[in-house]
Amino acid sequence: MSTLLSKKSRQVLLGPLSKNNPITIQVLGICSALAVTAKLEPALVMGISVTIIVAFSNIIVSLVRNTIPNRIRIIVQLVVVAALVTIVSEILKAFAYDVSVQLSVYVGLIITNCILMGRLEAFAMSNSPWESFLDGLGNGFGYAIILIIVSFFRELFGSGTLLGYNIIPQSFFNVGYMNNGLMMMPPMALILVACIIWVHRAKNKELQEK
């Protein structure tokens, strides 16, 4: 087990979950974090899709990294990502059509997700396939966690549901409680991400900029 996950590998896998989180620390992938987090379900699917695509494109690019001419490396990376995105998109359309409709263009736009190009350029181009895979998984999970937290609060307070099930009891609504319409608007996702960053940095003092 210790050989399977060396200290460095563990760092590569778990770092992006907190201290090197792609959204809250590197501030990448914000656009899709705003767009797909009104409900928990699309956010979950988006998180899983991005995780799979980052992990496997990291492996593929890492495998061919020594044969890619430097001047066309971005194009090669894009081809790899586009192929994977197309596969994931087709699978979603076949097996989870409703969710793929909700995600609409944002599945296709994973190609332009800054996290992907960031990981390929910064990690996969200079590391072994196994470590690149772990790095992809870690960053995908780090992205997914933030999406899940944001969409949890947005769906709970914006629609009163979670994964489509009613959570806030009808008796609350009877005495005057109302869902907050602001939660369904993208600006609230930005404010929630800011709150996560606030809590995160308050707990990890070394992350605070001077």
Partner: peptide, 10 residues
């Protein structure tokens, strides 16, 4: 503004 966008019916 919070009230206006959060609870437009009120």
């Amino acid at each position: 503004a919070f009230l206006f966008f959060g609870y437009p019916t009120h």
